[in-house]
Structure formats: C-alpha cells, structure tokens
Design a protein around this nucleic acid. Structure first.
Length: 256
DNA sequence: ATGTCAGAACACTTCTGA
C-alpha cells in the first residue's frame, strides 16, 4: 500500500492538482498539510468523486491537515496535541485505517529565528515527542507523515550556506528531530536514500525548481511494526513541475 | 534586487506567512 504526505499549499487552490494526483497514482492513504481553509470550505465532494473518504481539521487562512483513504473513511483518534490549551493551530490529526495508525503533521515553520515563532516550534516538537512516545508504547504500525519543517542533515539541502540561518536547519530543530528518531522511529526516505540529496520542497522564488535548489522537509516516520513492512519510499517529484503546482512534492512510502 | 504564491481585508492593492 502507498501512503503519501503532501503539503498542498491551499486545498482550494490545489484541488484540481490533488484530484489529478489521486486519479493517476491511486494512493491508499494521503496526509495533507496547509489546507489554508476552514472546515466548511474543504472540497469533500471532489474528494468523494475521486473515490476517497476523508477526515479534516481546518483553520481560517493558515495551517490545516487532513487524512484521506481510498474507498473508506479514516477513523479519527485525536486532533491537536496535548500540552498547550492556548494552541489553536490545526497541525495534528491522527486517524486509524484498517489497523494502521496514521497522523498528518504540519510542524511549525519557526521563522524568523530567534523569536516567539521559533520558541513555539520547539515547544510543539516537544509536545509531538510526547505523543510519539505514547504511540510507540501501543506497539502497533504507525506512520507519522507530514511537513516537519526540519532539514535533518546537511545533505538534505541544496545549500547549507543558503539555509544556515533558517529555522528549518537550526541545531535546536535538528536535535529534537534526532531525539524523535532515537525513540525508535524510522525515517523512511533516509533509509531508502542514505546518501541524502533527495528533495521534497522547492521554493517558488528565485527559480528554485529550475535550479533544483530544494531540500527535504516532508518526512514519513515509521514505528517498528510499520518499518518491518517497509518496501519502498520516494518522492513524486514530477508533480512539482506541473502548472499551478504546490511548492512541495508528494512524498511516499510503500508498505507490505 | 527576497526574484513567488495563497488568503484575507479598513478590498481591486497591500499585508502576512511561508
């Protein structure tokens, strides 16, 4: 089965591209980020027409996550992370589909750093780590799929120099990402491409796509029970080059 | 020379966030 994470950068602006992707690739499960839409603006009819069920957690203007499943409706387990009652951002949605737990994650960007947005990012990562630890304790197959807004290693970016002051690459962000992996999660893309140099995001600006100036920030983390079933992982890079594309490409794993 | 998008509003142009 193919499980995808795809930051669409606006579900209403991207619905034609998304339906095209679903039709062509027929993924089994898709985690979406950056819906940039309230719940009542989510184009569920178009998604149903494409043969998918969905659970979504929207928000006006920004953020927003969803989980789609082919031919079925995901069963919601949790929306939002514990640990901050003041946090209104729609960034975490956890569902179950046929015994597989899947969470759609939109981790805070954190720029500019230092500053309150970076502080929020780091605290959010700590809260995610708490949830991730609880999920591992369940000893079931889990996929944490999303835009983590973290460039884990130097070979996960076209240019360390260009990104050195960015929140995506700060030691504090990387330490927390590494700590998450150290709990027992497998970074599926890293396992498949240990040499790095695989991008999931290319900025709209400065001809980044044309220059292949990208980086890897969309990740699929697998619990041991899911990692045992890992067959393949990759990026559907071609979709980044299409008309009206998102700045992210769909990123996926295949599990047995 | 921050060169592009998407969404929203004191809205048809400018701002914010990424």
């Amino acid at each position: 089965m193919k499980i995808v994470t795809y930051n669409v950068n606006g579900i209403k602006a991207r619905i034609d591209r998304l339906v095209e992707y679903l039709t062509e690739q027929q993924p089994d499960i898709v985690c979406l980020q950056e819906l940039k839409s309230q719940d009542d603006g989510f184009p569920i009819d178009r998604i149903h027409e494409a043969g998918y069920g969905a659970v979504w957690h929207g928000q006006k203007s920004w953020n927003g996550v969803a989980v789609l499943a082919k031919g079925k409706v995901p069963v919601e387990r949790q929306r939002g992370l514990a640990g901050d009652p003041e946090d209104e951002h729609s960034r975490y949605l956890e569902c179950e589909i046929d015994g597989l737990v899947v969470a759609a994650i939109y981790l805070p960007n954190g720029n500019p750093q230092p500053g309150p947005k970076f502080d929020y990012k780091l605290k959010w990562m700590d809260r995610l780590a708490d949830r991730a630890r609880a999920l591992l304790a369940e000893e079931v197959p889990v996929v944490l799929a999303g835009d983590y807004n973290v460039i884990p290693n130097d070979d996960d970016t076209f240019s360390v120099r260009a990104m050195q002051d960015d929140a995506l690459m700060q030691p504090e962000s990387r330490e927390r990402y590494r700590a998450l992996l150290a709990q027992g999660w497998t970074d599926a893309l890293r396992t498949k491409f240990p040499g790095g140099k695989v991008w999931t995001f290319w900025d709209y600006q400065a001809g980044a796509w044309q220059r292949d100036a990208g980086f890897r920030i969309d990740h699929l983390l697998l619990s041991p029970q899911a990692a045992d079933r890992l067959r393949d992982a990759g990026v559907d890079k071609e979709y980044r080059g299409r008309e009206k594309a998102s700045d992210h490409a769909p990123t996926w794993v295949r599990l047995r």
